[in-house]
Amino acid sequence: MTVPLLAITAWSGTGKTTLLQQVIPELNALGVRCGLIKHTHHEMEVDTPGKDSYLLRKAGADQVIVASDRRWALMCETPQQPLSLAELAARMDSSVLDLVLVEGFKGEPVPKIVLWRRGVKGGVEDLLDEHVIAVASDEPLQTGLPALDMRQPAQVAAFIARWRAAYR
């Protein structure tokens, strides 16, 4: 079975990362093993300049695995074109995950929880599409979708766990 994707989408500065930092431990406590894919618009460097792995990747290695007895990381160059969300998710080890949370990727056709906070960029209606399964906010909203309190990570995690259980 494919591991379901669930995106947490919002305008920049709304608190996606902060909420995920609180929700992931709650999901773990509920027995839900999570992976995460985070979208960034910035040039990113996950390796440390000057380290051997960085130098070898910069020398032209298209893929580099850095491994220790506690973790490993695969870094891949994608000079031709960026990978799609589906291609990224396919690279995760679905044998050890129950769910892949996705931060960002507003335009992707995957189930989403929209975060919205008054005073951040645009309106909530600009974030809603047919893939949104709930809206988490710091104030009551009338969207016709399940409403979550983004200040209550346990509530958000419980909703996600129920959604995940029904997904099967």
Rank of each mutant, 00 (worst) to 15 (best):
E130Q: 13
L148C: 01
L55D: 01
P49T: 02
L56N: 08
K38L: 08
V23Q: 10
R33K: 15
R118E: 15
G123C: 06
P25M: 07
T78K: 04
L27K: 06
Y167Q: 15
E87F: 08
A29R: 15
V96I: 10
Q22L: 14
R57C: 12
H131Q: 15
L30D: 05
W72Q: 13
V114C: 07
A10H: 00
V135H: 06
D52K: 12
V114M: 04
R118N: 10
C34S: 14
P153D: 01
S94G: 15
V96Y: 00
W163I: 06
S137G: 11
L148G: 02
A59Q: 06
A158F: 00
F159W: 11
M1P: 14
F159T: 09
K112L: 07
L5S: 13
G104N: 09
H39F: 08
L145M: 08
K112M: 05
F159K: 10
K51M: 05
W11C: 07
R162K: 13
H39A: 09
D98Y: 11
S84D: 04
L88E: 09
K106G: 06
E43W: 01
Y54N: 06
V23M: 10
F105N: 02
L6K: 07
V114R: 01
P153Y: 00
A67C: 10
G144K: 09
G35L: 04
R162C: 06
G35C: 09
T40P: 01
W11Y: 15
E139K: 03
T48W: 03
L27C: 04
T48K: 13
I133F: 03
A147G: 08
L56P: 07
Q22S: 15
Q142S: 15
P25N: 11
S95M: 01
R91G: 13
L74A: 06
R162S: 08
L36D: 12
P4C: 00
R117L: 08
S94C: 12
S53M: 11
E26K: 14
E26N: 13
E45M: 03
L56C: 05
D129K: 02
V135P: 13
T17K: 05
R168C: 08
P109Q: 13
A67N: 06
S137M: 05
L30P: 10
L97I: 04
L30A: 13
T18Q: 04
S95H: 13
E125W: 05
P111Q: 08
R151A: 11
V124M: 01
G123F: 05
P4Y: 01
I65S: 09
L55H: 00
A161I: 14
L145W: 08
Y167P: 00
C76Y: 03
R33N: 14
V156Y: 07
A161V: 13
T18F: 07
A134R: 07
I160K: 03
S95T: 15
Q22C: 12
M75Q: 03
D126R: 15
L20Y: 04
